[in-house]
Design a binder for these strands. Structure first.
Length: 208
DNA sequence: TATGCGATATTCT
DNA sequence: GAATATCGCATAG
């Protein structure tokens, strides 16, 4: 039997304070499931509920911070609650939430969102793909939310245009699995997702 | 549904 | 040169 899926209510959005974010990277990855990302752009407000994340903690060879600070990954070291955005594969931006204390590199990759508001704007950015494919996958997520290097290093807690918010509704059951698209440290189960949610990326066995 | 492949640009060896 | 925290399209079952 397929698990039924509930859409989060459109209540008032409450900005998350930095002190609400767990300090540990893996804990933060789990915590962010069910929370909301908001990007206020000129045309309106883009809102998506986080349904899939991956942790890249301290000492992880697959993490960008593993080899130390470089011009590219500098934002990872800003302390928890900042945006780290980078460009890969010649085509995709990736949005991460930094997760450790200032000076230490660590982050959580946001892999998929359930679109809640500004869906028409997202469809314009993504050339009108199906609703379930709008922000399913990290590259699609960034495109739908209009994320690029402009947002790299932003403080997601400050009164800015890109921010994290709490939802009134608790998330459903949270599953975990190995991370997607890696070649190093592949065995760690540091991917988290809301089980059965149709907006989660990956093959079927990684969504159940 | 799942698998496979090419495209693409930046970073690092 | 090689690798890359991917996507979209094609094809097969």
């Amino acid at each position: 039997m397929k698990r039924s899926h509930q859409t989060a209510p459109r209540g008032r959005l409450r900005r998350l304070r930095r002190t609400e974010l767990p300090v540990d990277t893996v804990e933060l990855a789990r915590y962010l499931i069910g929370q909301v990302v908001v990007h206020d752009v000129a045309e309106g407000r883009l809102v998506g509920r986080i349904v899939e994340t991956e942790a890249y903690p301290i000492g992880d060879p697959a993490g960008h911070a593993f080899r130390g600070k470089t011009p590219r990954n500098g934002s990872l070291f800003l302390g928890r609650g900042h945006a780290y955005v980078y460009f890969v594969y010649g085509s995709s931006f990736m949005l991460n939430v930094t997760s450790e204390v200032r000076g230490v590199g660590g982050g959580v990759l946001l892999r998929a969102l359930e679109p809640l508001e500004g869906i028409d704007l997202m469809q314009r950015s993504r050339a009108a793909t199906r609703l379930t494919d709008l922000a399913r996958g990290p590259g699609r997520l960034a495109e739908a939310m209009q994320i690029d290097l402009t947002q790299d290093g932003l403080d997601l807690r400050a009164a800015g245009l890109l921010w994290l918010a709490a939802t009134a509704q608790n998330p459903g059951a949270i599953g975990n699995s190995v991370r997607i698209g890696l070649t190093r440290n592949v065995d760690r189960r540091w991917r988290f997702y809301e089980r059965g949610n149709p907006y989660v990326s990956g093959p079927k066995r990684l969504r159940e």
